[in-house]
Design a protein around this nucleic acid. Structure first.
Length: 598
RNA sequence: GGGCUCUUAGCUCAGCUGGAUAGAGCACCUCCCUUCUAAGGAGGCGGUCUCAGGUUCGAAUCCUGAAGGGCUCACCA
């Protein structure tokens, strides 16, 4: 494979030579930016930074470089200088050549996984098994899945994983409530999804717990006392102890109810379109990490206090002291996370870095975790990244499972599809579709709207989600982009597309809109790399939006099938094809599907 | 109180190596379907980029400080 020098690289080299021959000085770097639409030109050289090494007036320097480029560089057609900006016009031929080099490459922009590169493990979702997934999990899942796909597209092997929080007092609460009030209900007997059924008992527990607290307060206890002494809570704590001791009956119940939950989760994951390569269960990992704490004690990374608890002193790093082992020798959250990270690298030795998709309330935890792993001397510790994201809040405030003020993931998906269906029916473009096909399409559009809505914003920002008015289907939205894709497919069907048309090379003068589209396509590989480096699906979303806007403008201004010449028609069909393919691939990175019609 | 983080148009957001007159969508107002899907396009309205300093030829972008919102600072996970 021959690597072709990019336009920027070529220009950089020539500009350096120009500066060298005209001003007798060496230039370190050249700054470029896209030429603003109101000026003639395709790429702009920023002259200002050169003033550091060249004494002179930016206009004159720009003129001199411009002249040199026109004379010496094949594809440079003309130039103009505005203030300190040298706008360079490039020959159509350059863009045609680029376009022809990618037009049959269905994975343009993607880099095949390299054998030499270390793999990345991306953790996301990681729910508790006592309640169904809600909108917060949806954001987590979409982000994690998308970042995993993006890293893959950027040329690294990826393992998608999650750590399932399948043990602890919260699970026991659901179990206990079911035992007491459940009358042996099952998902089958009730027709409820397993996670919903279990979630109901978690709520039930809380109701009972509150009732008991009230009773105790009435009997004269303080609120704090009542909260500690409520019989149902004591019983749940007892249950946890039994579970840890391996009590057969408790473990059997635990297994049964968790299985219900997993069945439910799997349906939600499937509907959401996310998947995992490998799973970790907290019940299997919560004891891990202790040996490394012992190790760290020896090497002085940790120290123990008089009561036997073990700590890590991070005050030199501007943080606090952090406990890594309780005085009774049991593991804390941190211990477990240390152990799990190490375990993962043992299980998958090609892993050289990890991404943790976890809400920003755990920023501090991960800061500490990564630091400790570094101190323990793991070389992969420098490649750990906390993909932190803001909460999803409702107009009514925070979502709270126990109080039932959550936007349920399954309900949300259904609602989105319903809305998509309503809009679709109003527009009435689907005459030949069967009912099943329609439902499938509505789901694609509804999910597309939801996913795009969440992924297009910076993960760091918190989202205020108003179920009634949040998600549009017009403008900068998933459906808008899907619509453009469908419209292109319609053209391609009418064009009787075949391999000959696609692979044939035609020479046509480029329309402005065509050139802009080709330029936009050209950015895709860089956008993918950038998105991977920054763990940012939003970059992909915004790129796709820009591409689609550019295409729609082209579409309204230029007739594709009604082109004046056969050559123009062929080129435009090819262009539409490549744009559609790029939309599809880009949306694939976001986990959004594109419909053939809508 | 300490730490982290966010603040750009009425609303939701872009703006990621500091660069030209800060861009989109929604909403509101015009116009465009006898031509490839109008979930579209063309245009208008709308901004002291929270505030105050600083660095720079040049700051929404970098630095310092302030204000407001969020998160966090457990032998919980």
């Amino acid at each position: 494979m021959k690597s072709k020098m990019s336009l920027q690289d070529t220009l950089t080299n020539h500009i350096k030579q120009a500066i060298n021959s005209i001003y007798k000085v060496a230039l370190e770097t050249v700054e470029f930016q896209a030429t603003r639409k109101e000026f003639a030109g395709d790429i702009t050289v920023v002259v200002f930074p050169m003033l550091r090494v060249i004494k002179g007036n930016p206009m004159q320097i720009g003129e001199a470089i411009g002249n040199y480029l026109v004379e010496n560089v094949a594809n440079v057609k003309a130039f103009n200088v505005v203030k300190g900006f040298l706008n360079v016009e490039i020959e159509d031929g350059y863009y045609r050549e680029f376009f022809n080099s990618i037009k049959t490459n269905t994975t343009f922009g993607f880099v095949a996984p390299s054998v030499n590169e270390k793999a990345v493990m991306v953790e996301y979702s990681s729910p508790n098994t006592n309640k169904p997934l809600h909108l917060g999990h949806v954001r987590n899942n979409l982000l994690g899945y998308s970042v995993a796909e993006i890293i893959k597209a950027a040329g690294k092997k990826v393992y998608k994983t999650q750590i399932i929080n399948d043990r602890g007092i919260h699970i026991c609460k659901s179990m206990l409530a079911w035992q007491r009030f459940g009358n042996n209900e099952t998902p089958e007997s009730t027709g409820l999804k397993g996670d919903k059924l279990v979630g109901n008992y978690y709520v039930k527990f809380d109701q009972e717990y509150k009732k008991e607290i009230k009773d105790l307060i009435a009997k004269g206890q303080t609120e704090d006392e009542a909260k500690k002494n409520a019989p149902i809570l004591l019983e749940a704590q007892e249950m946890l102890i039994k579970w840890e001791a391996g009590d057969e009956e408790v473990v059997a119940l635990w297994t049964k109810m968790n299985t219900w939950v997993y069945d439910g989760f799997n349906i939600t994951y499937k509907n959401l379109g996310v998947d995992f390569d490998t799973l970790y269960y907290e019940s299997e990992t919560y004891l891990l990490g202790k040996e490394f704490v012992a190790e760290g004690l020896k090497t002085g990374v940790f120290f123990s206090k008089e009561d036997g608890s073990v700590w890590c002193d991070l005050t030199d790093d501007g943080l606090d002291e952090k406990i890594v082992l309780r005085s009774d020798g049991t593991a804390v959250y941190m211990t477990q996370d240390i152990g799990t990270a190490i375990q993962r690298v043992k299980d998958y030795p090609d892993v050289g870095g990890m991404v943790y998709t976890v809400g920003n309330e755990q920023d501090y935890h991960f800061q500490v975790l990564f630091l400790i792993l570094k101190k323990l001397g793991f070389d992969w510790a420098k490649n750990l990244f906390h993909l932190s994201y803001g909460m999803v809040d409702l107009p009514s405030g925070k979502m709270k499972s126990r109080e039932g003020t959550v936007v349920d993931a399954d309900d949300l998906i259904v609602e989105m599809a319903t809305t998509a269906g309503e809009i679709s029916q109003e527009l009435g473009k689907l005459e030949n579709y069967s009912e099943a096909e329609k439902q499938e399409l509505y789901k694609t559009i509804g999910l597309g709207a939801l996913k795009y809505y969440i992924l297009k914003v910076d993960p760091k920002k918190r989202i205020l989600f108003d179920p009634k008015s949040s998600i549009d289907f017009q403008g900068n939205t998933g459906p808008f982009i899907q619509y453009t894709y469908a419209r292109i497919q319609s053209i391609l069907r009418k064009a009787n597309l075949d391999d000959v048309v696609l692979s044939s090379t035609v020479e046509v003068a480029l329309h402005d809109k065509e050139k802009e589209l080709v330029k936009q396509l050209q950015l895709f590989p860089e956008v993918i790399q950038n998105a991977a480096d920054n763990h940012s699906p939003a970059l992909i979303a915004n790129y796709t939006y820009d591409l689609v806007k550019e295409f729609n403008s082209f579409y309204q201004n230029v007739s594709i099938l009604g082109a004046n010449t056969q050559n123009e028609k062929v080129f435009r069909v090819q262009l539409a094809y490549v744009v559609a393919n790029t939309i599809k691939n880009a949306f694939g990175l976001l986990g959004v599907q594109v419909p053939e019609r809508m």
